[in-house]
Amino acid sequence: MTFVTKIRLQSGNRPALDRIVDEIRSTAERKGAELRGPHSAPPERLSVPQYKSTAGDEHRQFRSWDYTVYTREMEIVGHNELARQVTEFDFPDGVHVEAELKQVEQMA
């Protein structure tokens, strides 16, 4: 049975996100691991209302805070040591990381 580690990275800081993705990719190449991705999702534009008081009076608010979230997904097939190493990287502030491990049964 093979393990597939799915890594999802999200950030509003695109250059920092791309640096981490490049670091994961180059590490996988050095180790000879099978890496699928990175797959990019369309950027997600978010808007957060900002009120002038804690009462939430809709007539008294500042301009909304708008920001963009960028997402990259990668899969490491097998190579559990690399997957463990990647999840222990020192990720910069503002880069959110999720790791999901799946066990895949190969066809005989």
Rank of each mutant, 00 (worst) to 15 (best):
F3L: 14
F3V: 11
F3I: 15
V4H: 13
L9E: 10
Q10T: 15
S11V: 12
S11E: 06
S11C: 01
N13A: 11
L17K: 01
D22E: 09
E23S: 11
S26H: 10
S26D: 08
T27K: 05
A28P: 06
A28R: 08
R30P: 10
K31F: 06
G32N: 11
G32Q: 04
A33Y: 05
A33E: 09
A33M: 10
E34G: 12
L35W: 12
G37A: 04
P38Y: 11
A41E: 11
P43I: 03
P43S: 07
S47H: 03
Q50W: 13
Y51I: 09
K52E: 15
T54C: 13
A55P: 08
A55K: 09
D57E: 08
E58N: 07
Q61H: 08
F62K: 04
S64M: 02
W65N: 08
D66W: 02
D66V: 01
V69K: 06
T71G: 04
R72K: 05
M74V: 00
E75C: 04
N80C: 08
N80K: 05
L82Q: 13
R84G: 09
R84I: 12
Q85C: 08
V86K: 02
F89T: 02
F89M: 10
F91P: 13
G94F: 04
V95W: 01
E98T: 09
E98F: 07
A99Q: 03
E100Y: 03
L101F: 10
L101M: 11
K102C: 13
M107N: 15
M107W: 12
A108Q: 09
A108E: 14
A108K: 07
